[in-house]
Design a protein around this nucleic acid. Structure first.
Lengths: 330, 330
DNA sequence: GTGAAAGCGCTAACAG
DNA sequence: CTGTTAGCGCTTTCAC
């Protein structure tokens, strides 16, 4: 007997109760103990699992959340993106909620009707999709991007402050020639980190130099190119604040090749606290961003919004400077 | 107006046809051109999207596939697992099919009723889940594991042959002291690669040495431990066939630290063709496994099984030895 | 080619 | 606390 054909009716018949009672059992509603036992027994014996689409049509939940991440070359090699997916997958897994994963390339074919709520990471290139989700009034929370629309929940990380503190840390160590290898500036967090960097220089009376600011796409390869530029002239920097640990690792590689001693001659701060970048002899000083916390916050918000519509939440999490080997006094 | 409330009725009314006609339009059934246009217009104007759960209840498709991967520590750092996820996500994305991702930790809470079919990777620790899916008669294909049940579709890679060819390649280069750093032997592919290794030695009249065979959990860390053992005695190997490129990279690291020249004094072959392991000056000789092809095959099989039940498919893909820098004649 | 109508399996009133 | 019943939005006969 194929268990896929078992319906609530079969269970009701076997347990000798009405389908309503079975439904109540499934949904943990109040039930007389004797009935509860009978139903439980029938459910087990028949190996019954409610058909979620039927349940949903009748107003119930699907117990699955959507996660939308904008696609880009190398996303599956990106610590950040994978941490998000990992965080969501494991957090939901513990709750018995399934994950409907959508990588947005260019077509918006996300199936709203198959999820109870959605987490949207970043929103870059898919603003229209965001609009659509808002319009459809599905429980939604955006992560790692501040949203203007006052009705949209989001939880982000204070990238500005992260950049500010990292830069100031370098300044406090006596550095004045501080470069920044930024990420793609169309990405909000990259922009914010850059702004934090600039602001720290300003506040500390250090004049910004345009050619100390180099943009990458977060990749090692581009970092390498920008580094060549950075060290081609005469007044090369004594410290570099990087948009990611990967980029910072590349700085370390570069320094080793060019025999520039770290941290004696060059200081480096990364961003992410990426365990992959901890090999080698030098432990990277870096800015840790609470990705896991961000994801968990987001899920909490989603949960509460699925029960009943809540006032929009807008939360900003703090970064933490992790001090290791790559910064020292001049 | 919230577009989430738009139903087939609204479209029918607006287009001046019956809901049956709208349904036919959605499902690309035959329609008079004039009606087709009217419906198309109404659908656009109302921004109508069928509710998939309702459609499903009535016998339609969800256009989403499930992917189940067994969870393990470090899965999100595993090239293999990520390639599978990436392959499935992108291949499905191109078809407009969504991905319902399930990482199996220990509870089977995969929601069969939310997918049209499922791809199961590996099956380790979740045999019961496999049984359940078979019993539920949902279109199913297992990847990277041979299944005894004659009714289950699978597509795997010939890991035995991969191991055999790699080992034989070393033998043909004059090696006799060939070690193998295997993966976790509870994983089928690790076992098959080991068997391939053994078989190649045997066929070439080289006696196996128990202490040349070391088991890891595919990780760098364990590889390091086993390497210490391997090189602690007097007759250390002149060549190592590794279960993965990560492990092989660690061999390279180890060799460099111990000043064992590769490939002069030590030859190394990896498995995976993992681009992450291509940094550094030495390009790894390795066995490429067609993960993407495997995934695509699986999806093709699933597709055909969703239309109508097909006879079970059992396909085995070949590996390819990629010859680079880490093997040379003795 | 098209419309009317009968469910698909479940939840949520509503009565008891 | 429990059973009866009316849909949820869609697909699919079955007539026309």
């Amino acid at each position: 007997m194929s268990s896929s054909k078992i319906t609530i009716k079969d269970v009701a018949k076997r347990a000798g109760v009405s389908i309503a009672t079975v439904s109540r059992f499934i949904n943990n509603a109040a039930l007389k103990e004797s009935n509860r036992k009978k139903v439980e027994k029938a459910v087990k014996e028949l190996n019954y699992h409610p058909l979620l689409y039927a349940r949903r049509l009748a107003g119930g939940k699907l117990d699955t959340f959507g996660l939308i991440i904008p696609g880009y070359e190398g996303i599956f090699y990106s610590f950040y993106a994978l941490e998000i997916i990992r965080g969501v997958a494991t957090t939901l897994g513990e709750k018995g909620v399934d994950l409907h994963l959508n990588i947005f390339w260019n077509k918006d074919n996300f199936k709203t009707s198959l999820v109870d709520g959605v987490i949207m990471a970043d929103v870059i290139g898919n603003q229209d999709q965001l609009k659509r989700l808002v319009k459809e009034e599905i429980p939604l929370v955006v992560i790692n991007k501040k949203i203007d629309d006052k009705n949209v929940n989001f939880v982000t990380i204070d990238n500005f402050r992260g950049g500010y503190e990292a830069t100031e840390f370098l300044i406090h160590h006596g550095h004045k020639r501080i470069a920044h290898l930024s990420g793609d500036l169309r990405v909000e967090c990259a922009k914010d980190r850059l702004e934090g960097y600039k602001s720290a220089l300003e506040k500390n009376g250090i004049k910004k130099k345009a050619n100390y600011i180099k943009t990458t796409n977060f990749s090692r390869k581009e970092a390498r190119g920008r580094l060549e530029e950075l060290f081609s002239g005469q007044d090369s920097p004594t410290a570099i604040f990087c948009c990611s640990d990967e980029v910072a690792s590349e700085v370390l590689n570069f320094a080793e090749e060019k025999s520039i001693e770290v941290p004696k001659k060059l200081n480096v701060i990364g961003f992410d606290d990426n365990p992959h970048c901890l090999y080698g002899n030098l432990m990277l000083t870096t800015v840790r961003q609470p990705l896991m916390t961000m994801v968990q916050e987001a899920i909490k918000i989603l949960d509460s919004n699925i029960e009943t519509k809540k006032p929009p939440q807008r939360v900003v999490l703090n970064t933490e400077l992790i001090i290791r080997d790559t910064v020292s006094f001049l």
